[in-house]
């Protein structure tokens, strides 16, 4: 049997690269995202800083410096994770184009998740790093001195980005049954950011709400990577964060796989 030509040999790698390249084609969009990010960061930093100050310099384990790190690392991650619940797949299922995707000799799930992870990884350079630099310049945030925090932090960050896109994939697959998934996306949008620690650290929540948050995959998308990356959580606790992230990744990928299989049988393409 003839071997496949090189590009097709590893299509999944190419999906990841395509995601990265697709995103780099719009520099103005990236700059615009950064401006919006920085403005929100300043507003969030102001109110969170004031909250720490009025609590006597310490709030739920955060000092002014670590709270600033929380705010700006979070702003930096915003371009890389998906808290709005929409995706290309969602539109393709609605229009029926996904039927063509199923004909290709690659996994629909892997192709979609990897493309989105690629986009997310690219966004770390023009949106993630500058946000953190702005944070360092305008706030009292400190970055950890320990190289282990960065090594574990990057793994946690990669896991967080992947959990986020793998979960949005599950949201999109509900379209096989519902066709119009706007409502599901809006629900996801409302809950994901809140429970992921986009607005306030989840450790500020009252106990019952914190427990509720920890029962969802959302903290794995942002709060945990920030914890590890900022050095707020180290050692065994950091390892535990990573473990929880891996478990959630396995869960959402598994659910996504089952949904794809069931949905494929369910798929009805209208028109002709």
């Amino acid at each position: 049997m003839r071997s496949l030509p090189p590009p097709a040999r590893n299509p999944y790698w190419r999906f990841l690269v395509a995601g990265i390249r697709g995103q780099s084609a719009y520099p103005l969009a990236t700059l615009a995202g950064l401006v919006a990010n920085a403005t929100f960061g300043l507003l969030k930093g102001g109110i969170m800083g004031a909250a720490v100050e009025s609590s006597g310099g310490e709030l739920a384990g955060y000092s002014a410096a670590t709270m600033a790190a929380f705010v700006w690392l979070g702003q930096g991650m915003l371009g890389s994770v998906n808290f709005w619940g929409g995706s290309d797949l969602q539109a393709r299922i609605k229009s029926g184009d996904v039927a063509v995707d199923f004909l290709r000799p690659v996994s629909v799930q892997a192709a979609n998740v990897l493309t989105d992870v690629g986009k997310g990884l690219f966004a770390l350079l023009p949106r993630g790093l500058p946000s953190v630099v702005i944070g360092v310049l305008v706030s009292s945030m400190v970055l950890p001195a320990d190289p282990a925090a960065y090594a574990l932090g990057l793994i946690s960050l990669l896991l967080g980005i992947t959990v986020s896109h793998a979960t949005v994939y599950v949201v999109a697959t509900t379209g096989f049954w519902l066709v119009e998934t706007r409502g599901v996306s809006v629900l996801y949008m409302a809950l994901s950011g809140f429970f992921a620690g986009l607005y306030t650290p989840i450790y500020l929540f009252p106990d019952w709400l914190l427990t509720l948050a920890l029962l969802t995959p959302f903290p794995s998308m942002m709060q945990f990577p920030i914890d590890v990356l900022s050095g707020q959580v180290t050692g065994a606790a950091a390892g535990q964060h990573l473990g929880v992230q891996v478990v959630w990744l396995a869960v959402v990928l598994g659910v996504g796989h089952l949904m794809t299989r069931a949905g494929r049988r369910r798929l009805e393409v209208q028109g002709g």
């Binding site: 109110i47 969170m48 909250a51 720490v52 009025s54 609590s55 709030l59 739920a60 706007r182 409502g183 599901v184 809006v186 629900l187 949008m189 409302a190 809950l191 809140f194 607005y199 306030t200 500020l204 929540f205 009252p206 709400l209």
Partner: peptide
């Protein structure tokens, strides 16, 4: 579903403020 979603987004936005202002008095 859209109406409920829009309502929920608003409620969550208020909850953020509630969390913050109950964590510190003022």
């Amino acid at each position: 579903m859209d109406l409920v979603g829009a309502l929920l987004v608003g409620i969550i936005e208020f909850t953020e403020i509630w969390v913050l202002y109950t964590a510190s008095d003022q």
